[in-house]
């Protein structure tokens, strides 16, 4: 089954004629379900979302307007004070900047490598299936377990990476202990883990590319590189944008790996906004302030999602 890279352009289904006599069977209840099947069928899903989301969302919004440390005293209303304090909090701004740095670096590398890998896997060669399965492992292996392996490989005492680097005459690699290198190191680990996803998405895109431009290029006698840069990559743009969008959204919310490997350190050098919010809530028990941070984080994720959706739409209409 080949995965479509865009939804098959389908004429929107005709509005079903409601309560058509022919479909009306039996008594009241089945008449109801027949008539409102579009609401009845997704009702459990909708209820689930309400059940799972409403309390956490309400709790976070409520807490963000209060000051509470979890004790026996009730939360104290403080208005927008928590939000005002975030604006003066150097650690908050640091977290925002680090989020941008981490996400930019990680997603950038993933997209470049993912496209490159997709071009390789798009070719036919012996053992492609097995190689592709192997390439996918990092994406589906349990992050909490793999993070421990990375932690061990970066360990100052028993770190194999440091040994390998020194063996070829390089410096000792203690990146996760170096405030300047910790984010690149974590971005590298994220890239290790998620390049396969970008590869898969781009691979599906490659499979769905039209043949005509290639025919034309062949007639023109264009070289392979030229074809790559002037035909393949431009055509892939929407797909790459999609892949980048999904990675961006999830990357902002990265938690397990950073928590396990550095817990935000050394210092606060790898404390992205998500971790800072976690610390304020679960380590410091500042539920009010921590909730305000979560509100900002959520706004950031939604903002990015909306911007990228707009970008994608524009791309779709202009190409």
């Amino acid at each position: 089954m080949s995965a479509p890279h865009t939804r098959p352009t389908q004429t929107p289904p005709e509005r079903p004629t409601r309560g058509k006599r022919g479909t009306r069977r039996g008594g009241g209840f089945s008449w109801f379900t027949e008539r409102y099947d579009r609401f009845v069928l997704p009702a459990p899903a909708f209820l689930l979302v309400v059940l799972l989301l409403v309390f956490p969302v309400a709790f976070t919004l409520y807490m963000s307007l209060h000051s509470w440390n979890g004790g026996l005293r009730p939360p104290e209303f403080v208005g927008l004070d928590n939000f005002a304090r975030t604006l003066e909090d150097a650690r908050f701004w640091g977290g925002v900047l680090r989020t941008g740095y981490f996400v930019g670096l990680a997603v950038g590398m993933q997209v470049v490598l993912g496209v490159a890998a997709a071009l390789v896997f798009h070719r036919k060669f012996v053992g492609r299936g097995a190689a592709r399965a192997f390439f996918l492992f990092p994406m589906i292996a349990t992050p909490a377990a793999i993070a421990l392996v990375w932690k061990m490989m970066f360990d100052p005492t028993l770190g194999v990476l440091s040994y390998l680097s020194q063996a070829v005459g390089g410096p000792p690699i203690t990146w996760t202990s170096d405030p300047n290198l910790v984010i690149p190191a974590l971005a590298m680990i994220d890239t290790w883990q998620w390049t396969p996803l970008v590869m898969l998405i781009v691979l599906a895109g490659l499979a769905a590319l039209p043949h005509e431009p290639y025919e034309a290029a062949r007639i023109d006698g264009a070289g392979e590189l030229r074809v790559l840069f002037s035909i393949t990559l431009p055509l892939l743009r929407p797909v790459v944008l999609t892949a980048a969008m999904f990675r961006l959204i999830d990357c902002i919310k990265t938690f397990d790996t950073i928590m396990i490997i550095t817990a935000g350190g050394p210092g606060h050098s790898s404390e992205i906004l998500n971790l800072y919010a976690f610390n304020q809530n679960l380590s410091f028990l500042n539920f009010g302030y921590g909730s305000a941070l979560l509100v900002w984080l959520t706004l950031l994720v939604f903002g990015v999602a909306i911007l990228l959706t707009i970008a994608r739409r524009k791309g779709a209409t202009s190409s």
Partner: peptide, 8 residues
């Protein structure tokens, strides 16, 4: 101290 001590 050994290298990497800030992250010990």
């Amino acid at each position: 101290g050994p290298p990497g001590i800030t992250g010990f």
